[in-house]
Write a protein that binds this DNA or RNA. Structure first.
Length: 112
DNA sequence: CCACTGACTACTT
DNA sequence: CAAGTAGCCAGTG
């Protein structure tokens, strides 16, 4: 399996409930800063196979990048169910819901 | 190996 | 705040 893909999946799997991460952040945590776009690809490719919480991954503007016909509503509802609040522009307060990277610890393990 | 594509990000208008 | 432009990197053909 592609190392990059594995790392990305690992990171996403460690995102706590009620928190979100941006593509760029996930890529950085995976050890590939700047590869935000590939994170998106991994999500699309592995989400179903790995049962990942892909809905906890949004873009750097605190918004969902998916088109209305691509699962946008689903992601929004799932996040709201976890306590994530959406503003009038369908944006979330990153300061509030963005995962506190300081809590990172199990990712190096990869034992999940 | 080269070229194209993409759930992105940052900067500028 | 919204829209356009340029730079990014990895996966796929």
């Amino acid at each position: 399996m592609k190392p990059f893909t594995e790392d990305v999946i690992r990171v996403i799997r460690n995102i706590p409930k009620g928190k979100v991460l941006t593509y760029g952040l996930v890529a950085a945590l995976a050890g590939h800063p700047g590869a935000a776009r590939q994170v998106a690809r991994v999500l699309h490719t592995m989400s179903s196979a790995h049962n990942l919480p892909w809905h906890r991954v949004i873009n750097g503007q605190g918004k969902i990048s998916l088109p209305p016909a691509g699962g946008y509503e689903i992601q929004k509802k799932r996040l709201e169910s976890e306590g994530v609040e959406f503003g009038r522009s369908n944006r979330v307060d990153l300061k509030q819901v963005l995962w506190d990277i300081s809590s990172l610890d199990d990712i190096e393990n990869g034992t999940v």
